[in-house]
Amino acid sequence: MASSPVRPETQDRLHEHVVAQRLLDSAATLSYDPATEVDWETPLDKNFHGASPEWSTLYGTAYWGELTEAQRKELTRHEAASVASTGIWFEMILQQMVLRDIYAKDPTDAEFQWALTEVAEECRHSIMFARGAQKLGAPAYRPHRFAIELGRAFKTVAFGEAAYAAILVAEEVLDVMQRDWMRDDRVVPFVRTINNIHVVEESRHMKFARDETLKRLKKVGWVRRQIHAFVIAIASYVIVTSMVNRGVYANAGLDRKRALGEARANEHHKSMMRSSCSGLMDFLASARLLTKPALIFYKRANLI
């Protein structure tokens, strides 16, 4: 007697369980404790950059050409600290959305346990970024008040594919630049270690976010897809434009007004952002989330 075919819903649940278990196994065998892995004791060596110079918002501008090496290094240290602070802001949003998503679900399920594992890793990352920014000698950089309030609303109401795709955008953008920084011997060693830890552990988070985004989109209608595509694009714009705080230039001893003007017009930095996000844009396109209204915000953020 022929066996009954496995229902699609059962296949999907089996796939989700297998993926979640693999992520749990990966976390069990390849995780780091930043408290012991990062060299927090050695004083900051100001002969190093805080990030790869090519990722500076002023790299390639006339102003960059006028700066001394010491000024360039000071600027990249402040920019790296600002990116770390923005990372903390969004990781706090991420943690709340994930916890809300699994609230009252089956705690014996591998997906539930993986979600809590991800939250635990994000907590460690936030502390790591905070200590890293402090060691770089930077103040507490925060997004603009308007961005903070938008984030407050987003974490409260975002659900499904909107939540997970926005998580993916933030993680993907950070991932590409940090892969460059962690391999660059011009970057101060403790920052390279921080970036390496984040890249390794975030690879699991990105896998989960991609799978969750596609899963939530399976039975989504045209209207919801259009609305969430637009919401994701706005969230992406706010995240990306908040990465480098306007205060970094004055704090690095530069002319704030001139630096802001040249940074806004910097075609090199825009090109770096576009190239770093090509894989992300391909994914969003394959998920049919690059709608015409959404494209407006991705273009304004120089992601496409």
Rank of each mutant, 00 (worst) to 15 (best):
35 A>R: 00
38 V>I: 13
40 W>L: 14
41 E>G: 11
41 E>D: 15
43 P>M: 00
44 L>H: 07
44 L>F: 05
46 K>H: 15
48 F>R: 13
52 S>C: 11
53 P>E: 04
59 Y>D: 12
60 G>I: 06
63 Y>T: 10
70 A>E: 09
72 R>W: 10
72 R>C: 15
74 E>G: 13
76 T>H: 08
78 H>C: 04
78 H>P: 06
80 A>V: 10
81 A>T: 04
81 A>I: 05
85 S>V: 00
88 I>C: 13
91 E>R: 09
91 E>A: 10
92 M>K: 04
92 M>C: 04
92 M>H: 06
95 Q>E: 15
95 Q>D: 15
98 V>W: 01
99 L>K: 14
100 R>N: 12
100 R>L: 05
101 D>Q: 04
103 Y>T: 10
103 Y>E: 08
104 A>F: 07
105 K>D: 14
106 D>W: 13
106 D>C: 13
108 T>H: 10
110 A>S: 15
112 F>R: 01
113 Q>R: 15
114 W>E: 09
114 W>F: 11
116 L>C: 13
117 T>W: 00
118 E>K: 00
118 E>D: 04
119 V>D: 07
119 V>L: 11
119 V>T: 14
120 A>R: 06
120 A>L: 12
121 E>Y: 00
122 E>T: 01
123 C>S: 11
127 I>S: 08
127 I>R: 14
129 F>Y: 06
130 A>D: 08
131 R>L: 13
131 R>W: 09
131 R>S: 08
131 R>Q: 12
133 A>C: 02
135 K>I: 12
135 K>D: 10
135 K>A: 07
138 A>W: 02
139 P>K: 10
139 P>D: 10
139 P>L: 09
144 H>R: 14
145 R>E: 09
147 A>K: 15
147 A>E: 15
148 I>Y: 06
148 I>G: 07
150 L>W: 15
154 F>E: 08
154 F>Y: 15
155 K>T: 09
160 G>N: 02
160 G>I: 04
163 A>G: 11
167 I>F: 11
167 I>D: 03
169 V>Y: 10
177 M>G: 10
178 Q>V: 04
178 Q>D: 08
182 M>P: 05
